[in-house]
Design a protein around this nucleic acid. Structure first.
Lengths: 155, 155
DNA sequence: GATGAAACAGCCGAGCT
DNA sequence: AGCTCGGCTGTTTCATC
């Protein structure tokens, strides 16, 4: 895991559809060398996937919200399969604090969100925050050369 | 925006590095036809990008947390550039409720997180939730044929 | 990790439905 | 208008060094 690996990762975070040749030019290596590095990064589970980002609003999903759910741990066995299969769940984390699950969801309107929260009552009590605007859209952790040298962020 | 477009979007969400030919086979179209559709979806800002997902832990970022920040709106002008340039900020949303900003961050350890929260005090009061585990990793809104027909999620 | 050849995929134009 | 088919170009992959 050297500087070139990090550069490749950075480039693939920027645009996962760069061709091997394009990547090779940018890191001053040959295409086969880049291909081998990417294969290794995938095998080591450093790169876990390549995903298209889509605009939920253009698909009619106008409401994004974060739901904090206070749930007794005994309910996990039914809760986890539920959130995993629910297409409106964008992300779900188990977090510290009394509101133990933090769930990010997307819905066409507040009506469907309301209905979803209703279903969540089965699992525990909820506290919902609807997003107004997004100043930083979801992105990967940045791994530029500066960060590497500094070890931590440039606070 | 028909069923085939949605299928293509779904496939690119699953793996953004599928070749045009692979996509073409899966949707029973020719590669040029798929290329034209993708170009259109990008131009219409339905597809906003293609990004590699990486495992933060493998890069030494062991702590992920959500920070709720209660901030007076007058501080936005300095806060927005700050979070946008900070590489540890994975996502930042303006949300309803008294804790107006919800910030997702990644740090090597709790030490750096603590230091970051210290800096945030300039902007307002914070409430932090550290992530223990992730039951649903960040994913795009799913747009399968079933969803399209149902209009909403299969609750 | 580089190079060169062969296989493969992508691109552009013409013709079709 | 949008799709397919053909050929040319560019890209990936494999063998060799």
């Amino acid at each position: 895991m050297d500087k070139i690996d990090k550069k490749i990762i950075g480039l693939l975070q920027e645009n996962a559809r760069y061709s091997l040749k394009q990547l090779a030019e940018k890191v001053f290596l040959s295409s086969p060398a880049v291909a081998a590095r990417i294969e290794r990064l995938e095998k080591e589970n450093i790169i876990t996937g390549y995903h298209a980002s889509i605009n939920p609003i253009k698909l009619g999903y106008h409401i994004t919200a974060f739901i904090n759910l206070e749930m007794s741990p005994t309910k996990k066995d039914t809760f986890y399969p539920f959130v995993q299969q629910c297409p409106n769940v964008i992300e779900c984390n188990c977090v510290t604090g009394s509101y133990s699950m933090l769930i990010k969801v997307c819905f066409p309107s507040t009506m469907e969100l309301d209905s979803f929260i209703g279903h969540l009552q089965k699992f525990g009590t909820t506290k919902t925050q609807i997003v107004f605007s997004t100043s930083v859209p979801h992105r990967g952790i940045s791994i530029t050369a500066e960060d590497v040298e500094a070890g931590v962020s440039n606070l």
